[in-house]
Amino acid sequence: MTKAIAHGYPRTLAVALAIGLGLWFATSEARIDTWASLLPLFEWMETTPLGVIGQSWGAVFATVQAVHLLGMALLGGAVLVADGRLLDLAFRDTPLLEVQTHCHRLFTCGLVTAALTGLFMTCGVAIKIYYLPVFWYKMLALAVGVAFVYGVRRPLLRQDSDQVHPAVLKLLAVASLMVWFTVAATGRWIGFSG
């Protein structure tokens, strides 16, 4: 079965290896030097127009936060429907490719909205969150999520689902739910830290 799952997915395995190496880096001592070298970038972010607006205009910052949540809601809805279909929990009578294609578009809209608003929010409180471990956990989870979606999930589901092992489809759904839950939960916890 392992051979059957691994066969024909070299790109999937390459991205999985990259994610694994990224996770290893994030837990190794080498990350500390990288983290220290990023401080000037975060100091500069606070001086950009986005950073100045974020610090001076509380109402703008709060509204952008709300739009960030709306982007996450769109992302969450798309993930739930797409993964529900992969797990055979919903829309079994609709072709898998069709559900995945349309949900992927909505997912990308949600992700872009959340990423742009997230960038604005980061500029507003750059130095504060630079020192928060939970911010880096979220960035790590987000990087894993993006690599997983665009490097593993989407290429796999773009082809005929009959060619994909059923166990792989289920694993994709479970991994997707876990990674996006982690992104959302760590993101929320940033608000409680610092």
């Binding site: 949540l69 969450g76 809805g77 798309a78 739930l80 429907v81 909505l106 839950f181 939960a185 409680f192």
Partner: peptide, 18 residues
Amino acid sequence: IETTHVLTLMFSLGLLFL
């Protein structure tokens, strides 16, 4: 509780948006 409140928003509001 607050985290659950916000995360459920991704669940229910996301489905409503769809």
